[in-house]
């Protein structure tokens, strides 16, 4: 009990973890900012009737879901600079995570869109809605309700996946904790970092519960 018995050392640990947590939060936020909308574009591409669009998009989803995120992170960090010049580590994380999570969200969105009964499209058609009106006003709003639960699963996974950024030495919270464990020989920093992840996911869970309740005003 090197840290928990010693308030001064504990404060120092918490300060450093909190600093690392800022980076963890930025990875979390940027990944969602990129992947939540990008996922919709990917989902629409995947559902396109044109093979020239749907086939490459399917392949993209296969690669993103079929290989380790850590490997994708290495690929972005080591190979992307050869194409576009040097990029900061953190940006490599944003790009790799954003592309990866977009693939998962895309499949969730696709499942949601396909679960809307055909009768909704038919009713929209006989009432004269255009295809884009049908999607934006009738299909999409109903899809949001249907995908909340699977999306919340992915978001919770993302909280924990941020620790993968350690692989390219981005100093987020997990790397900070690991370094302190190495230097002190105590595993306490790692477990305290674990509490941070747990608390963050408690907040995420509460947020999704709130959203789910907000959408409870109707059921199918």
């Amino acid at each position: 009990m090197q840290y928990l018995n010693d308030p001064e050392r504990l404060m120092k640990l918490l300060t450093q973890l909190t600093h690392g947590f800022g980076t963890t939060l930025s990875i979390f936020a940027m990944t969602l900012i990129i992947s939540l909308p990008l996922g919709m574009i990917v989902a629409l591409g995947r559902m396109s009737r044109h093979k020239l669009i749907s086939a490459p998009v399917s392949f993209y989803i296969l690669i993103m879901r079929g290989t380790p995120l850590m490997l994708q992170l290495f690929a972005v960090y080591f190979f992307l600079p050869r194409l576009i010049g040097p990029i900061p580590r953190l940006n490599a994380v944003y790009i790799a995570f954003g592309l990866n999570y977009a693939a998962y969200f895309a499949e969730i969105y696709r499942g949601g869109i396909m679960s809307i009964p055909p009768g909704q499209y038919e009713a929209a058609q006989v009432l004269g809605f255009t295809r884009s009106q049908t999607f934006m006003r009738i299909i999409l709003p109903q899809t949001v309700k249907r995908v909340l639960l699977p999306v919340s699963n992915e978001v919770i996974t993302l909280v924990k996946d941020t620790s993968l950024a350690t692989a390219i030495a981005v100093s987020e919270m997990f790397l900070t904790a690991k370094n302190m464990t190495s230097s002190s020989g105590s595993v306490e920093p790692l477990f305290i970092a674990g509490v941070f992840y747990l608390l963050m996911n408690a907040v995420v869970t509460a947020f999704f519960n709130f959203l789910t309740n907000r959408f409870n005003y109707y059921h199918d």
Binding site: Q120, G128, I138, Q142, Y218
Partner: peptide
């Protein structure tokens, strides 16, 4: 649009 259509399963917009 010159025709209205009423379905067996109503197909109202639930939201």
């Amino acid at each position: 649009l010159k025709m209205g259509f009423v379905f067996q399963s109503y197909n109202l917009f639930p939201h």
